[in-house]
Nucleic acid binder design. Structure first.
Lengths: 186, 186
DNA sequence: TATAAGATACCGTCTGGACGGTTTGTCAAG
DNA sequence: CTTGACAAACCGTCCAGACGGTATCTTATA
């Protein structure tokens, strides 16, 4: 007989809201802040409601993972289409994504995921699979030491952004980006 | 009347044991596996015993951090002494440490720290301080984009080792190391 | 097209267990 | 005989998940 029962049902929106809130919470309060109570409350849903959409906490994190890797895959594919050079094409697309994420505000979701990834063995494994799958797929064009190095550097930059351990000015950032692009052609 | 009461008292050894176990546990079961109960039990000490050495959990993690950064600082300083070239000297020392850690078995401690670092805001801040302190100290020799890039790449490689997301053969590894060294001279 | 009959989308409470930390007690060494 | 190094029992809190319910949506059938 509560209000929430009477409001219009919009499952997909609620689901999206839950994922979004989960990402935001872990950003603001660390991974420990992602509790079912906190997430559901911040999303304006009861805990029961949350557990209806995601049967357990792991499913919530997996949902986050799915969402973000799907988006990443789409962006990478798009980026690769507009790259005429075959060698290092995937690497350059990856670079674009990382720089886009560190520059803009969309980083949130990925930042939470990185943290959750490292603490949760199950998600670590899923990420490992993502990486090896893509490495295998583009083994012909993106397996040179230069390409590997470029991707590693991107990961390092990304990590630094998460930890806010460096304060890199824009010119330096661009210089590094140019270097990474050069590496991807080696 | 228990065994531990009768065994020779060796507080420093127990302390070291506790730190070691904490590192191992987080490796095997993720950061969530590092509970006071689990650590103390695996170290063959009661929880009271653990809390005697470290008044709370944060103190345990801080102890780990201190231990490892001290060792890192010592290694870096040693490495820097034997480097005749000023430019990028710190970066190359950093590279040596990372490669040594990823090659050998000593990585464990740092791996746990990375994970704990990301989840624990307090440790994240301490790491940030470590990085900025060293960046400031060597701003004259190690602040070029090339040096930064080299260090980022090392971080990325290190992260990959933690996540075991890549399986890099030794030749590729050495090739990348050579590239990073070249970058440190730019 | 109206409506009965599910199916789906929630709500709110409860519980069992884990976990960080405290307290009190015990033993051994100096 | 004091102090440091532990043990063991205990406490309060927090949290994941179960459960039983209720309201809305959909679909099939008459």
């Amino acid at each position: 007989m509560s209000i929430a029962h009477h409001r219009r049902k919009q499952p997909e929106l609620v689901r999206q809201q839950l994922l979004e809130v989960a990402a935001r919470l872990s950003l603001e309060q660390g991974a420990a802040g992602v509790t079912l109570d906190a997430v559901s409350q911040a999303a304006g849903v009861s805990k029961g409601g949350l557990l209806h959409h995601f049967p357990n906490k792991m499913a919530l994190l997996n949902g986050l993972f799915d969402d973000l890797t799907e988006k990443l895959d789409r962006t990478i594919e798009l980026e690769m289409r507009s790259d005429p050079v075959a060698h290092g094409r995937f690497t350059r697309a990856y670079l674009s994504c990382v720089f886009a994420m560190t520059d803009e505000a969309d980083a949130q979701g990925w930042q939470v995921l990185t943290i959750a990834l490292l603490s949760e063995p199950q998600l670590r494994e899923r990420w490992r699979l993502w990486v090896t799958d893509h490495a295998d797929e583009f083994v012909g064009t993106d397996s040179s030491p230069g390409c590997l190095l470029a991707r590693f550097a991107a990961d390092g930059l990304w990590l630094a952004d998460i930890l806010k351990s460096h304060d890199i000015d824009q010119p330096t950032r661009q210089a590094m980006r140019a270097q990474m692009l050069a590496l991807s052609l080696q």
